[in-house]
């Protein structure tokens, strides 16, 4: 997959994961140009509808990047993120969206390399046309 289309949406939380993204930027670490990060305060604040809408509008994949276990800024956001991920994955399965197109992972604060690697690996596993 190359170029800016089809888009891959990466939701990052405002804390650990976004810090990883910023560090990747400061360090000039490359990741695919079709990756569009969207910062939210906490992954637990997302809703299945927001993720499904990305697929509705043609996203090839959606990756949720939050805080490592036990490091959630709000304490319970990780648990909520896991619940909404499972719920969304089940709905995506019903809608025929391959499981490789939706991911949940975490990045520690300041880990630019981990951010770039995780985003790159997720994107490489997607098929070229945005469908599975």
């Amino acid at each position: 997959m190359s170029g800016t289309e089809p888009r891959v949406i990466v939701y990052t939380c405002n804390w650990n994961a976004y810090s990883g993204l910023e560090t990747a930027g400061i360090q000039g670490l490359p990741y695919p140009a079709n990756v569009h990060p969207i910062k939210v305060m906490c992954l637990g604040r997302l809703h299945p509808g927001l993720i499904l809408q990305a697929f509705q509008h043609g996203a090839a994949g959606v990756l949720l990047l939050g805080c490592p276990p036990e490091e959630c800024h709000y304490g319970f956001g990780n648990t909520r993120a896991e619940e909404l991920f499972q719920q969304t994955a089940a709905l995506a399965h019903l809608l025929g969206i391959g499981e490789e197109r939706l991911g949940l992972d975490h990045v520690a604060a300041g880990q630019g390399e981990a951010f770039a690697t995780k985003v790159r690996q997720f994107t490489e596993h997607l098929s070229g046309d945005g469908r599975s």
């Binding site: 809703h47 299945p48 809408q53 809608l95």
Partner: peptide
């Protein structure tokens, strides 16, 4: 419900 239901309807 965050438009989840309307979204899956539109996807269908």
């Amino acid at each position: 419900h965050g438009a989840t239901i309307q979204t899956w309807m539109r996807m269908m």
